[in-house]
Write a protein that binds this DNA or RNA. Structure first.
Lengths: 161, 161
DNA sequence: TAGAGTTATTTTGACGTCAAGATAAATGGA
DNA sequence: TCCATTTATCTTGACGTCAAAATAACTCTA
């Protein structure tokens, strides 16, 4: 009897008129997410990066050399608002991990590029992060992992594409 | 080719030394969660409640009459810190949805109770919320729903219990 | 080539959260 | 009974996020 099952039982007793079947799945997904976030941040944090900073650096890194993207590109990749992205870039710039490079052909736009320091840091941090992700999925059997991944992918396409 | 698959491809090209298999599952779970949160908040928001306020009221409601729990009880149910809970209760008290009831037997502790207004509101809001949850899982077949729920439950027990 | 509309980014102000510490009350062993 | 310890809750200050508005530069059409 897990935490979520207890919640469903309570609703069943208090509001028998409601069919709370979907709440179980959504509740489990939410709690799982919260646990995973916490574990992920513990590792990125050990490199002085919160998830926000980590995501921006990782997005730049995986975009390939010269490791430069516009704020709009970063926005499209990260599900946050433009103001949030400005703030994230500000923080990273203060730490010397990225730099803003003006675009000579368009005065409105900017490129955000990894500095040498930023590149070195994110390469280290990603290595540790991926190791951590292995640890965080190691409790799933190969079959369960595959099945879960497939189902999540199916579900996700209902919201993306 | 979904968003997450593109990310994995990029990593494969840029850092072929890394086995990023787990990143796919964790990334999909994260994005799915973000989409679901957004949808859930759209409905709770139409009752003037953010997810924080909704969660507290719902926890009190499903605890059964007399709809009273201590801040510590609420804390245990909601995965947030004590300071956050104090703030949530403050907000709800300002809106007249809950009240703090001193415990005559223990001067340190308090009961947080639903007001009539709070009870009426959360009963309405939960009804709409559950309907919304049905909508948000309607794209899954019965089999997929069952399988996903089971797998999430299995995974979750690695972090709880 | 002037002006309206669009695009890219930043600013502003409010809000929710957290970690760490403060406060206040209860407990329990000497 | 006293005092150190524990428990319950709240306070503080910093931070990340958002929605909405502001700024600045580009584009397109008449």
């Amino acid at each position: 009897m897990d935490h979520v099952s207890r919640i469903l039982e309570q609703w069943h007793r208090e509001r028998p008129d409601l069919d709370v079947t979907p709440m179980g799945l959504l509740g489990r997904l939410g709690r799982l997410h919260a646990h995973l976030i916490r574990e992920v941040e513990a590792v990125t944090g050990s490199y002085g990066l919160n998830r926000a900073s980590f995501d921006v650096l990782a997005t730049l890194r995986r975009s390939g050399a010269p490791y430069e993207l516009s704020p709009s590109d970063l926005l499209a990749a990260t599900m946050v608002t433009s103001g949030t992205m400005t703030n994230r870039i500000d923080q990273l710039e203060k730490q010397g991990l990225v730099e803003r490079i003006p675009n000579p052909e368009d005065g409105r736009s900017v490129k955000v590029g990894l500095t040498d320091k930023g590149l070195a840091l994110i390469d280290q941090a990603v290595t540790a992060h991926v190791e951590n992700q292995h640890r965080l999925t190691a409790m799933l059997s190969t079959e369960d992992f595959q099945a879960l991944d497939t189902l999540l992918g199916k579900y996700l396409t209902a919201f993306e594409d």
